[in-house]
Write a protein that binds this DNA or RNA. Structure first.
Lengths: 195, 195
DNA sequence: CTCATTTCTTATCCTACATCAACGTGTAGT
DNA sequence: ACTACACGTTGATGTAGGATAAGAAATGAG
């Protein structure tokens, strides 16, 4: 079941099916049941995850035990805690599964290895990192400037499918508000739109 | 005055002085007076900036005309709006100068060009992008979870020198609070520390 | 040096959202 | 089918920080 990742690479790199398969051949998949933890803060694990199917959650837990969601990772996303995968430090965030999920485990040595087959992948990597950055900057801008309602509307617009798959209290956590507030925001919106 | 950028490259790549100088030879510098705008939202300019001296500010302006600071960029930092430099779209954010500033203008074609001299630079670039991402994730976490006081303390700890160079109302804007609130926070902190 | 503008502070009042608590509904496990 | 827990809703009350306003202090331009 490495097909998805191979296809992902084939779609954005000019390589043959064989090259894609070869690149991916040394990788393993892993299954995570809903609610199960994949990475704990403090862990030292140099693995990134490509999500084949399902949905992961990348979050912190503060001193009061409250969770704060940094991002969601659905199919075809890559997810890792840079502190540990890139900088060999203890992980800062947690990863767990919102749905039963299958990931491809991408170990640190994958990139040097695939580089020999497809040097292009470095450029692709850079492009995707820039893309992450611009999205995160817009998120920061949102957190600095927007009300609860504006944040929610922005979320729905940006991730319409996630809105249905993620429990509301998690969306609230992602938006930096309480579940109660989100419930009220949704009520007001419904009223405005006569529903 | 390209020395700083050349030195910056020499410090993190295993290259000779000559290579560094050669790489940098085609680049131009630019001077921006305090308060002057370097990039406007909506602009289409494929330039990144390396700050030789001074201090830049990367920010948005919302519908109500309020400014929100995404980041500060002091000496030895690279700054650009990815929407325009990487994705050829209209810039989303603004850049202006908090102090008189001199930048090296790094045009889009610099990276392919320098790659031929120092292929290593791709890896350096990737590392720095990962580093940006982890800092931005921590910032998002802070905005989701921390009070005004906690945010300020975190800022002071992370950027002690900026605390002195940046006017308070801008720090407030970076933290997502009003200047008045920051003033109160500082007053309370002073009280706590008997000052 | 002087006047003007920007920045910072302080006080008062106000609002968006948090907190607390109770209750309905849905879903999972036995 | 019964029980229990997770999730969403709603209401009552609290509070951190916003808005407004006004003055003090610092900075800057001529």
């Amino acid at each position: 079941m490495l097909d998805k990742f191979a296809q992902y690479l084939r779609d954005r790199l000019s390589i043959t099916d064989e090259q894609a398969s070869e690149a991916v051949s040394c990788l393993k998949t892993k299954t995570i049941k809903k609610g199960q933890i994949l990475l704990n803060a403090g862990d030292l694990k140099s693995e990134a995850y490509f999500i084949n199917s399902g949905l992961l959650r990348y979050f912190s837990i503060d001193e009061k035990g409250k969770e704060h969601i940094i991002q969601f990772a659905p199919e075809n996303w890559m997810l890792s805690d840079r502190d540990t995968t890139v900088f060999n430090e203890a992980a800062f965030f947690y990863i767990d599964a919102i749905e039963d999920t299958e990931v491809v485990v991408v170990k640190k040595d994958f990139f040097p290895a695939i580089q020999n087959i497809v040097p292009e992948i470095l450029q692709l990597n850079i492009l995707m990192l820039h893309n992450s950055i611009r999205f995160m900057q817009k998120r920061i801008n949102m957190l600095l400037s927007a009300t609860a309602e504006e944040r929610y509307l922005d979320f729905v617009k940006l991730y319409p499918n996630l809105t249905l798959r993620v429990p509301q209290w998690m969306i609230a956590s992602y938006l930096g508000i309480t579940p109660e507030s989100l419930s009220r925001v949704r009520k007001d919106l419904a009223k405005k739109h006569f529903r």
